[in-house]
Design a protein around this nucleic acid. Structure first.
Length: 532
RNA sequence: GGGCCCGUAGCUCAGUGGCAGAGCAGGGGACUUUUAAUCCUCGUGUCCUGGGUUCGAAUCCCAGCGGGCCCUCCA
């Protein structure tokens, strides 16, 4: 976490940290890295005693450009119109499409402990006239803007091109209009049917005032104007924008040369790759993003993003691997170290900060949080699969004292994660189920191991016996036949689960129907699958 | 064509000028009641390749190779 603390140490004076997003659709897990970094920058600044404002913008005057996100009957009517002007497709009470989708990510951010001091809506700032001064400067300096595009991004616009998009007074589209003249008060616009492929303009044209929400700046200018309007001093952005000649370069140049203000400090960050693939909401390639959020609680998700430096791509492959259990284990290991317990292995630099910034609550005492009992994910994954186990009791026993309220909440959260993981990503080797038929592996059991199974069938406790009773029956039967306990358990797991190990065998057998258990023990003792 | 990131043990990654390291996985062992718990133990690797600088390079420089993402429009 040195990067955030170093940044905080480098700046002086009050800081405004900003990011903004177009509320065009659902967000995927990878796109949460930016907000988490943003939040940590703000937390680090505050920890360093800097007065800090965290802003998050909703670019809701941007045009709708993806018809997949609209209901079929709405496509022709709505494509190209500002998101803020499109009705909520979900029909769940939001005033617009933009409000609906913005609410999804506001809620998602809150769930991750990210609470900006203020969300701002660009449609409101345009309507209120706050953007008018920047619109005027951009139009007055259109030639400079064109030159910047040419020089920085190698994009050549016609000499009549002006950096503004009028919201067509006739059809309401913003993505289809082009402005060719500016007389100092009004612009001449055309709403062209063929300007973009994804939306069709209505063909009207005329002179209109660009002020008061009648028009919107193009992306790069709007970005730079936001910096001036809000006094932004730090703004991270993803590497898709941060590439040379890319969006950030253009906006930086526009900030300097058109709006005459130094752009904010950038914190470029890499993406999250799932199973070597870029996150994609539409392609269905790799792992569906929303599943990860269901399986990873907020603190572990924050931890996933914060462990590496921002400029490192994160390779995360949860599908059929132990990546998720290991993420929990590493989180717990850092927590244990913060709490002053001995831990195995080396600790990464700044581990206490990584742990602290991963916590949901920015005001939490991270040493107190670190000291809490956190049930090991792998252990829970086993217990969750054994019927009849009271996991709360088992975890209290493991801790050595009853769980407090916070620890109980952690346990519940992890149990949900464990169950989700077992249903989705967990490798077969993590799943265990009592086999319906005798597993083939019993054929490889030694004669004395099979003998033990047969003997246990004869000494099986009465129906309704508890796990304790079964467990002691296993031990006494094994020792009476001078079979080491380890081999006795191995034989039991082979007979019931078809694997060499498993959960506590006594409790497992107690959870099953007694006659089934006895029958299976006899079959296994016979050493072969009985004819059907 | 350009930019950024990565390339070190089976996997995930530390180490960024001074004897190649951890975690996990895997092997071996201990433990007659927390048997997927816990404890002990085991690392011969083209540090991607080739040059260069240096007393000394995984580390710095140059040139490559491989992988990933991005760079047109839109945002």
């Amino acid at each position: 976490m040195e990067w955030a603390d170093e940044l905080a140490a480098r700046v002086s004076g009050p800081q405004v940290v900003n990011d903004s997003k177009t509320p065009s659709g659902t967000i995927h897990v990878g796109s949460l890295r930016g907000p988490v970094i943003l939040d940590v920058v703000a937390r680090a600044l505050r920890a360093a005693g800097r007065e800090t404002t965290l802003l998050y913008g909703i670019d809701d005057l941007d045009p709708m450009d993806a018809q997949a996100l609209l209901t079929p009957d709405a496509v022709e009517r709505e494509m190209g119109r500002p998101l803020a002007h499109i009705p909520d497709q979900a029909g769940d009470g939001h005033s617009s499409y933009a409000r609906h989708h913005a609410q999804v990510f506001i809620d998602t951010f809150a769930g991750l402990g990210i609470k900006p001091d203020r969300y701002y809506w660009m449609s409101e700032h345009y309507a209120a006239g706050d953007m008018d001064p920047y619109i005027k400067v951009a139009l007055d300096r259109a030639a400079i803007v064109r030159e910047v595009y040419q020089r920085v991004a190698n994009v050549r616009h016609p000499d009549t091109w002006h950096p503004i998009s009028v919201i067509c007074p006739t059809c309401g589209r913003v993505g289809t209009t082009i402005v060719t003249k500016w007389d100092g008060e009004k612009v001449f616009f055309e709403c062209r049917p063929d300007l973009v492929t994804w939306a069709k303009g209505c063909g009207s044209s005329g002179w209109v005032s660009p002020y008061g929400g009648a028009a919107k700046l193009p992306w790069n200018l709007e970005w730079a104007a936001q910096w001036s309007l809000f006094g932004v001093t730090i703004e991270p952005c993803g590497k898709d924008l941060a590439t040379a000649g890319g969006s950030r370069d253009r906006s930086d140049a526009i900030a300097r040369e058109v709006f005459e203000r130094e752009p904010p400090i950038n914190v470029p960050y890499e993406f999250l790759n799932i199973g070597g693939k870029k996150m994609s909401t539409s392609k269905g390639r790799g792992t569906p993003a929303h599943l990860i959020a269901e399986v990873l609680p907020p603190e572990q998700l924050r931890f996933l993003f914060l462990r590496p430096r921002p400029n490192q791509a994160i390779e995360f492959d949860p599908d059929g691997t132990d990546a998720i259990p290991r993420l929990f284990d590493e989180f717990d290991r850092l927590g244990a170290a913060v709490a002053g317990r001995d831990v195995k292995g080396e600790l990464p630099a700044g581990f206490a900060a990584v742990f602290g910034y991963s916590l949901l609550d920015p005001t939490a005492d991270y040493e107190v949080e670190a000291a809490r009992f956190r049930p090991p994910f792998g252990h829970l994954a086993v217990l969750a699969q054994v019927p009849g186990v009271d996991i709360g009791v088992a975890m209290a026993a493991e801790k050595g004292s009853p769980l407090d309220t916070a620890e109980r909440a952690i346990l519940d959260e992890r149990l949900r994660a464990v169950r989700g993981w077992l249903d989705t990503f967990a490798p077969e080797s993590a799943r265990m189920e009592v086999r319906a038929t005798l597993p083939e592996g019993v054929a490889t059991l030694a004669p004395e191991e099979r003998g033990f199974l047969g003997a246990l069938a004869e000494k099986a406790p009465a129906a309704g016996s508890d796990g304790e009773t079964w467990q002691s029956a296993i031990f006494t039967t094994a020792s009476s036949r001078e079979l080491p306990a380890g081999r006795a358990f191995k034989a039991l797991y082979a007979a019931f689960l078809g694997r060499p190990n498993g959960p506590r065998a006594g409790w497992l057998l107690a959870s099953l129907d007694r006659s089934f258990v006895v029958e299976r023990l006899r079959e296994a003792a016979a050493g072969a699958t009985l004819p059907a």
